[in-house]
Computed example of a mutant assay.
Amino acid sequence: MTLRVLAAGDNFVLSSLLKSAVLHEVPDAEVSTVDFPWPDVPFGKVAEVDEATGTEEEMISALRGHDVLVTQMGAVTERVLRECPDLKLVAVSRGGPINVNIPAATAAGVAVCYAPGRNATATAEMTIALMLAVLRRVPETHAHTANGEWRGDYYRYERCGLELEGTPVGLVGYGAIGSRVAKVLTAFGAEVLIYDPYADPSLPGLVHDLDDLLTRSRILTLHARVTEETEGLIGLRELSLLPRGSYVVNAARGALLDYSAVVEALHDGHLAGAAFDTYAVEPIPSGDALLSAPNVVMTPHIAGASKAVAEKAARIVAAEVGRFARGEELANCSNPEVRDVHRR
């Protein structure tokens, strides 16, 4: 029987990328496409699922009659699952299937898989870019120079930043992204310190106490997942443990960090600078104190935005479709009990 697949793409993970990758894995599949407007239209909550795009009606209309859905942001709600009874697999081309109602999918016998690590390299590279940008004041000096101002005062000792070579850099989290950041920092000659309770105890540079890491780090960069233990992990007390004149970088999740504490530390000079790609509230509200804080580099949550990420994401979910078509175990399944039932 021909496998009927819907490739529900957007303006980042294109439907054409998804379709091409699926046909590479399952050449005889019947692949239809639909396109959603993210990121030109921000994602949001759709019924009971978060970080989704489009409407339930649009998804139902496109998905009916298909066995498999591959998507990045398409909303897979209880209603969508109920009205698309042929669906057997949802493959989400992102690090977690946030846009899928997992309990409803499990109850409906629909396996859900995802694409961990798709943006690890891109985010690690962006972390280093943010770090260098804030250390060497790249955005502000570019703005002056492009405006015709030749500002030699940035060569004054007190306005100069740090080099990475020889500088203690503390990493909170040593997963797919943190480990890549550590590798690049090592190549720069930085002194890499790591705090991660789940890391191999023999890992070079591992520090077993967060406070110890903070007191020893001139640059702090965050790479942990948001859990009950890590939400709000770095607040005013923790920032105060950093040596005066330190820097903070966060390209992970906004919930890890108290941004009001960062603003306070920047204004009183305890922090020399900060660089962020993620925030407590996104988009950043107009008038937020962070927008006027000194020596802050900010990007709009784009650390994972590279062509390679989109292409890799498509390949990862397409590989899951191939496994599904061949009756093999899925590599990254959120509800493996569904597939176990199907095998029996």
Rank of each mutant, 00 (worst) to 15 (best):
A129D: 12
A129R: 09
L130P: 04
M131G: 02
M131R: 06
L132Q: 09
A133W: 02
A133H: 05
A133V: 00
V134F: 09
L135S: 10
L135W: 09
L135Y: 12
L135G: 07
R136M: 11
R136Y: 05
R137F: 05
R137H: 11
R137T: 10
R137K: 13
V138D: 00
V138C: 03
V138M: 14
P139W: 08
E140M: 13
E140Q: 15
E140A: 07
T141I: 10
T141W: 05
H142D: 15
H142L: 14
H144L: 15
H144A: 14
T145W: 03
A146C: 13
A146G: 14
A146R: 13
A146S: 15
N147T: 14
N147D: 15
G148K: 12
E149V: 15
W150H: 13
R151Q: 11
R151H: 12
R151C: 09
R151L: 10
G152Y: 14
G152I: 09
D153W: 13
D153C: 03
D153M: 07
D153V: 13
Y154R: 06
Y154L: 11
Y154G: 03
Y154E: 13
Y155N: 13
Y155F: 14
Y155I: 02
R156V: 08
Y157G: 12
R159S: 07
R159K: 10
C160Q: 15
C160T: 14
G161S: 09
L162E: 06
L162K: 07
L162Q: 03
E163G: 08
L164M: 06
E165V: 00
G166R: 06
G166I: 03
G166T: 04
T167C: 03
T167F: 01
T167D: 02
G170D: 07
G170Y: 07
L171R: 00
L171G: 02
V172S: 03
V172Q: 01
G173Q: 04
G175F: 06
G175W: 03
G175I: 08
A176Y: 03
A176H: 05
A176D: 15
I177Y: 01
I177P: 00
I177T: 02
G178V: 06
G178T: 10
S179C: 12
R180C: 02
R180I: 02
R180S: 03
V181Q: 12
V181L: 07
V181P: 07
V181S: 06
V181G: 11
A182D: 06
V184C: 00
V184D: 08
L185D: 06
L185M: 04
L185H: 04
L185V: 04
T186A: 13
A187T: 12
A187E: 07
A187G: 12
A190M: 05
A190Y: 04
E191F: 00
E191A: 08
E191C: 04
V192I: 07
L193M: 09
L193A: 03
L193K: 01
L193D: 01
L193V: 07
L193C: 00
I194K: 09
I194Y: 11
I194L: 11
Y195K: 01
D196Q: 10
P197I: 14
P197S: 09
Y198I: 00
Y198A: 08
A199N: 01
A199K: 01
A199D: 01
D200N: 15
D200T: 03
P201Q: 12
P201S: 12
P201K: 10
S202R: 14
L203Q: 15
P204Q: 01
P204D: 04
P204N: 10
P204F: 11
G205Q: 07
L206I: 00
L206A: 01
V207S: 03
H208L: 10
H208Y: 03
